[in-house]
């Protein structure tokens, strides 16, 4: 089975985000960029499937600016076999919207014929949580979102999902799309030999035009603003006082 893993280049989760002066978005110039952490979990899961003999080949794909090549190389250094870069923007500030990404991915799936698409549940930059679901709708494939555990059982995937109020285990027929959640696994470090090997692994470069997909944004960002600064706290003298204050604030 071939596994396709879409990965997104996003602002590193450790970076303190700054909003651009004109409010048009987050400043990404000269900022550390990394693979979306949920996508890292998806890559890790794909590698584990391969190590367990359930998958033969892992293809990673990224859609965005040319620099996403680095994100793909990181996935290759973790253990993916092959990469496809779809250049769809020149400016690092351009975010390709989920529908356009899903349309391009659908074309990649048509070409690659994977048995499974493993994707992060969402990207940490815009938290859309939509691409996997849209891809499922376009392809007419089964989907299992928010996976915290998964296994392959014949031609089905058994996926435990983190839902409000607990866990739900479902069985979906493959080919399928599984979007992964935080607790599925802990991604490995890229080893030194794999970092060296990653340079030599194939990376195909395409453009959105090659797939005939229009990536023009459908959404308009009206305003981006910093979260409100936290108000100063107060020191309370006793538990009773704390409870009284909380009641006052309507918190209990």
């Amino acid at each position: 089975m071939k596994v396709l893993v879409p990965v997104k280049r996003v602002i590193d989760y450790n970076v303190k985000v700054r909003v651009k002066a004109d409010g048009s978005g987050v400043d990404l110039a000269n900022v550390k960029m990394s693979m979306n952490p949920f996508d890292e979990i998806a890559v890790e899961e794909a590698i584990r499937l391969k190590e367990a003999g359930k998958a033969e080949e892992i293809v990673v794909v990224s859609i965005g600016v040319k620099q996403a090549q680095e994100t793909l190389r990181t996935a290759l250094a973790m253990g993916a076999d092959r990469a496809i870069l779809v250049v769809a923007a020149d400016d690092v500030h351009t975010d390709i919207e989920p529908l356009a990404v899903a349309k391009i991915l659908a074309k990649v799936v048509e070409e690659e014929q994977p048995g499974l698409v493993l994707a992060g549940k969402q990207a940490i930059d815009n938290d859309m949580n939509a691409t996997g679901q849209m891809l499922s709708a376009i392809l007419g494939w089964s989907q299992a979102t928010f996976a915290s555990e998964m296994g392959i059982d014949g031609d089905s995937a058994v996926v435990t999902r983190e839902v409000d109020g607990g866990l739900q285990t479902i069985k979906v027929k493959m080919p399928a799309i599984v979007t992964v959640d935080l607790r599925l696994n802990e991604p490995r470090y890229a080893s030194l030999p794999n970092i060296m090997k990653a340079k030599k692994k194939p990376l195909d470069e395409k453009t959105a035009d090659d797939y005939g997909v229009d990536v023009t944004p459908r959404l308009e960002i009206v305003k981006t603003s910093e979260p409100a600064a936290r108000a100063a706290g107060i020191m309370v003298g006793s538990v009773d006082e704390l409870v009284a204050k909380l009641k006052e604030a309507g918190a209990v």
């Binding site: 190389r73 990181t74 890229a190 970092i195 990653a198």
Partner: peptide, 15 residues
Amino acid sequence: SHEQRMLVDTVRGFI
């Protein structure tokens, strides 16, 4: 280079 960054990320993360 990106290789250097990946290498340092691994070493730094391991430490």
